[in-house]
Computed example of a mutant assay.
Amino acid sequence: MTELLTVILLGIVEGITEFLPVSSTGHLILATRLLGYDAGRWEVFNVVIQLGAILAIVVLYWRTFWAVGMGLFRREPKSWLFLRNLVVAFIPAAVIGLALHKYIEALLGNAEVVTIALVVGGFAILAVERFAPRSDISGVADIPLKTVIGIGFLQCLAMIPGVSRSGATILGALALGVERRTAAEFSFFLAIPTMLGASALELLKNRDAIASGGGVGLGAIAIGAAVSFIVALLVVKWFVGIVTKHGFVPFALYRVVAGSAALIWLLSK
């Protein structure tokens, strides 16, 4: 497979899976094993192309961000609560992620961990959908502080590849009493600082390898990010519609089936 085709394929995988509760990192790790390419060489690429998917959220929700920005300027309480909730929920992942960075990296090459996490996460989604309390919290600014702190710590579960950052935050929000659409949108917004931080860390850590051409080049990263941006634009709107009408059960079933199939394939090799 040519490098350009691999770049496009991984960009599509990232754009589809970044905001679904199915683990984009897990799918990229499994793609590594399936396609047989050098995981170390593509490590920075897999992280940084997430910026394309993040940009899709900025574009799709630009009115929300504009309103919050204007509200901050006018000192409107709702806008400050919106910002507070994002900052507070981001802090646990930033602190724990930096502290455990080496241990997290060690897991990123383990496809078997991904498959198990996919299956366990699928059953977790089914359990939360069945037992989560009903809620009328229908706005990011309306989420109570203690709930935001809980969501922030639950997001840290996604440091295990295959758990899914969006899945951990959405399910955490649901379990703590946030309604579906707000839980999904809070996960989208929280992805912005989280993924920006992860991408900046990877670029800084691997700047010498990128400059020397030891990894995937900046041109390939740019193409992958562009592909993930376009695909994520389409997927996010579809995802919100599915969640609003049918909940998260379809994604739970996908996780169980895909994770089980991948594990069987890995064990048979």
Rank of each mutant, 00 (worst) to 15 (best):
A173G: 10
G162C: 13
F188S: 00
I149G: 09
A141V: 12
Q155G: 08
L174T: 05
F186M: 00
K146C: 13
P144K: 00
A132T: 09
S164M: 07
G122T: 14
L176C: 13
I116P: 14
V120S: 10
I116R: 09
D136I: 10
A183E: 00
A173C: 11
A183S: 03
I143F: 01
V140L: 11
R134N: 11
V140A: 05
P161S: 12
I137K: 04
G167V: 03
I160K: 01
L171P: 09
I151K: 06
L154R: 05
L126H: 10
I151N: 04
E185A: 03
A158G: 08
I125C: 10
D136W: 11
I143S: 04
I137R: 02
S166D: 05
T182N: 02
T169C: 08
G121N: 08
P144N: 02
G167L: 05
A117Q: 03
P161H: 14
I125E: 01
I149L: 13
I160P: 07
R130C: 13
E129T: 14
R181L: 07
I116E: 13
P161N: 13
R130I: 11
R130A: 13
S187W: 05
L154G: 05
E129S: 14
L118Q: 09
C156R: 04
L171Q: 02
V140T: 08
P144H: 01
F188I: 02
F188P: 03
E129N: 12
R165W: 08
D142A: 13
F131I: 07
A183H: 00
M159L: 12
G167W: 01
A141M: 09
I116T: 11
I143G: 01
A168E: 03
F186S: 00
I116A: 14
A158D: 06
A175H: 09
V120M: 11
V148G: 04
S187Y: 08
G139L: 10
K146I: 15
L157I: 07
G167I: 03
G167Q: 08
S166H: 06
R180L: 00
R130F: 14
L174I: 06
R181N: 08
F186R: 00
L126M: 13
I116L: 15
G139M: 11
E129Y: 14
G162V: 11
E179G: 04
I149V: 15
I151T: 07
L154H: 07
I149D: 06
V128G: 10
S187F: 02
R134Q: 14
M159R: 10
R180M: 02
I137N: 03
I149N: 06
S166L: 07
I170K: 02
G162L: 09
A117D: 01
A184Q: 01
I125G: 04
A127V: 15
L157R: 02
G150N: 12
V119M: 15
A127I: 15
R181G: 06
D142E: 14
G152R: 02
D136Q: 09
A184G: 01
I143R: 03
R181M: 08
F153E: 06
A132I: 09
A132K: 04
F123S: 15
V178R: 00
F123C: 15
A141R: 13
G167F: 02
F186V: 01
V120C: 11
R130T: 14
D142Y: 09
K146V: 15
D136Y: 10
R134S: 10
G122R: 12
L126P: 12
A117W: 01
I170C: 05
L118F: 12
R134M: 11
A124K: 03
E179I: 05
F188Y: 01
A132S: 12
C156E: 04
